[in-house]
Amino acid sequence: MGVTKHLAAVVLAAAVAAGPASLATAADGEAVQAVKARQDLMKSIGGNVKGLREMLQGKNTDTAADAQRRAEEIAESARQIAVLFEPEYHISNVGDIETTAKPELWTDYEDFTSKATALEEASGELALAAQTEDMNAIKTAFGDMSKTCGGCHQAYRVKKD
């Protein structure tokens, strides 16, 4: 099945991005693999956001080239979001694995995927801004990108305590 193959590729990509610690095992069902993969994907995005932010705050030694790489990685992750949240990986299909996805994500699936596309575009803009090496432009593009994260999480993620 095309989707399954696609999922396998995405799971692998996400696992590589997140490192071996959280590799989904073959014994897990496909839906569980999808949940683990999307959690790893979010962690990977979060790690890159944190790195970008620390660069802007002068807390790490990242260069504009690092910022560009991180932005491109985020764009790549954003492209995988829709696949990992496909309707067959609905929270009701994933057994007792913990997930903070809201059911609305699937009832408003089109809106959800358009928000993922917004992240992909905004991180693409950030990568372009990074090429200019203009810190103000990078900061503005980073802010615009971060807002796409917040808008989507606000709508589709259960709030953590």
């Binding site: 995005i45 979060g46 890159n48 956001v49 790195g51 807002k147 994260c149 917040g150 999480h153």
Partner: peptide, 24 residues
């Protein structure tokens, strides 16, 4: 100020739902 301007937490995550409304 990163939180107030972009809704970002220091760990790279974004703020929870009600605070996001406050920021956005």
């Amino acid at each position: 100020t990163f939180l107030l301007s972009m809704g970002l937490l220091p760990d790279g995550d974004v703020v929870g739902s009600t605070m996001w409304e406050v920021v956005s």
